[in-house]
Simulated scan of single mutants.
Amino acid sequence: MRRPEAPASTTLHGELVAALRDYIVEGSLADGARVPERLLCERFGISRTPLREALKVLAAEGLIELLPNRGARVRVFSAEDLHELFDVMGGLEALAGRLACERIGDAEVAEIERVHHEMYRHYLRRDLHGYFQCNQEIHGMIVAAAGNATLRATYDSLAGRIRRVRYAANLDKQRDRWGEAMREHEAILDALRRRAGSELSDVLFQHLRNKRKAALRQAEPAEIPE
């Protein structure tokens, strides 16, 4: 039986949320900057009502902060925030990797491998947007493969907060963090293929630690306008 199509309004809302998420994650606004509602309405050809509904979703994800009667601004993290968030995310992904190796099937591994190769093609073209989309999909697929709803909910509740920081970490100019991350993903895929749970757990945790180092180098104190 054919599943009913989603209402056009629902589809448009999802597309708007995704477009706004990319706009903010990819650094179009500075840390702590106000979200320019009029500019975004013009950019996406929408009124303020759907824009504000989309901003509520991004606020729930932790990407922006809503200000009482003053719009919204891009969320800013202190160095201590980043230390804590990346450690927790590293722990969650490490656990997910261990659990995934206990239950993942060949078809799921093959799909992760397919996305990995697509990510590598984006890397060779220096297409950070496409690379990052695939990168986040792979991490999400490993978490999903763990088959633990509590783990998945906890991961999802934190992932949105540091999505922008994870993206920016690839731009670290002090070292080729992007290239390092690609090599780490090769190790992730290799351990997953072999169902080496303990090894994959360690690789994922170190992957997040390395990402944290790059994120801290990229982070600069930002003045938050009142």
Rank of each mutant, 00 (worst) to 15 (best):
S157Q: 10
R121E: 07
P36N: 06
G14W: 00
D176F: 11
A72R: 09
P221R: 12
H129A: 05
I162R: 06
S201V: 05
G91Y: 01
V35R: 00
A191G: 02
C134S: 11
R212P: 09
L40Q: 01
D190A: 15
T10R: 12
H122G: 01
V76W: 00
A8E: 15
V25S: 01
E118C: 04
L192S: 08
A79K: 14
L20N: 01
A94M: 08
C134R: 01
G97F: 01
G147A: 07
S28M: 10
V25M: 03
V57T: 15
E223F: 13
R175W: 15
V115G: 01
E220W: 08
A219R: 15
I224P: 10
A79N: 14
R163W: 09
L124T: 10
I112H: 03
H83I: 14
R21K: 10
Y167K: 00
R70F: 08
L16A: 10
P221H: 12
F86Q: 05
Q133N: 00
D106N: 07
Y167V: 02
M182K: 09
R183C: 02
R3P: 03
G32C: 04
P225M: 11
L58P: 00
A19G: 06
A19T: 09
T10Y: 11
G27A: 11
A145W: 00
Y120C: 07
A146S: 15
G160W: 14
R175A: 15
L20Y: 05
E26T: 13
T10W: 07
E84S: 14
H116R: 14
A181Y: 12
A19I: 05
R175S: 12
L82C: 03
R212L: 08
L51P: 03
G105K: 10
E53C: 03
V74A: 08
A187Q: 15
L158G: 06
M89G: 10
T154S: 08
P50G: 05
R43F: 04
M182V: 12
A219H: 14
V115P: 00
T154D: 03
E102I: 01
S9F: 14
E26R: 13
L40W: 02
L39D: 11
D176M: 05
S47Q: 10
G14I: 04
G97I: 04
T10V: 13
I142N: 11
R152N: 10
L171Q: 12
C41E: 13
A33D: 13
A196E: 12
L189P: 01
R183A: 11
N148M: 08
K173H: 13
G14N: 11
P7R: 07
L20S: 02
S157P: 07
P221C: 03
K213H: 10
K173V: 13
R194L: 15
A214L: 02
H129I: 01
D106I: 11
M89V: 04
M141F: 01
L67N: 08
V203Y: 02
Q136K: 14
N210A: 04
R177N: 09
G45Y: 06
A94H: 04
